[in-house]
Amino acid sequence: MSVTADATAVIETAGLRKVYRTRAGRRVVAVDDLDLVVPAGGVHGFLGPNGSGKTTTIRMLLGLARANRGEMRLFGETVPARLPAVMDRVGAVVEEPKFVPTFSGRKNLQLLARPLGIPSTAVDAALEQVGLDTRDRDRYGGYSLGMRQRLAIAATLLKQPELLILDEPTNGLDPAGIRDIRDMIRGLGESGVTVLLSSHILAEVQQVCHSVSIIGNGHLLASGPVADLVGDNTLSVVRVYVADPDAATGILEAAGYHVARAGDHLDVEGAQHPEDITRALADRGHYVRALMPVRGDLESVFLQLTRDVTLGGASGPLPGDLDDTEDTDDGDHHGEDRR
């Protein structure tokens, strides 16, 4: 499969594959045949369990890792070949912030900015934007995790990017910091910047993102606007309050519903029409005290889609176990493991 340049897409991948080799010689498939499209503008969530290939995909897009197979485009340009032509338009934080601990926050940003001719006033502005302007001359090694995260975000803002790729940007931030960053991401998205937000905090993604892509086992599982995904994938669950939950359970199961007892109420799946539940119970002399549809959320969609994926990365090696010498042999995949 090949990528065809989509004028409205900022990121496109097709058939993307990455195989790592562990130090023990074991091959681990991190990304497998991934087709991803991120439309221009707005905030796009990038979700997946630990080890599902999110960070590896981001690293390949940014030229930090080589793909074994597949095609990638940023702003319609094939990468990594044309990466230098588009990189000025991309800001990114990959995994945890990475700066020189003995340099100050300001010095770290200056060293990144100067090769591109970015003026020091831009450094000042970026530091102020993330609230680090009063601690900019402190050593980075003495920064808290939240401050490091802010500095990483400040670095991405130096280039005034059209595409911002953020990998867990609120890690280590306090609640006020999380809100600030969330507002900033939302504001950037509304101002026309495309933001690819990789996050584990699904509620945060649902609040901020216009669209999402969910991956598991290195594959794309679902992609589209958040509202559509939640609507398409939410189970029809109706919460029912009755005087005798045990008797009501028997009646509804006999009527073909899947019923889960939860405290003083029942969660009934498979009810497309709630009035059918009312009727079935009333016909047997049980009257509903309250009935409400349960709204789906991104978390339930995510868990549903990734149900078969081992959460927590237990099936894959830790990053430290990986030898980043990539395997370019695509012919034989026997004996491969998945992360």
Binding site: G63, L64, M87, V90, K98, V100, L116
Partner: peptide
């Protein structure tokens, strides 16, 4: 060596990818 061990090399390559 410090560029690699601190991870700042990847940061630098995000600004100068050549």
């Amino acid at each position: 060596g410090a560029d690699f061990t601190t991870g700042s090399m990847s940061n630098q390559l995000l600004f100068v990818p050549r």
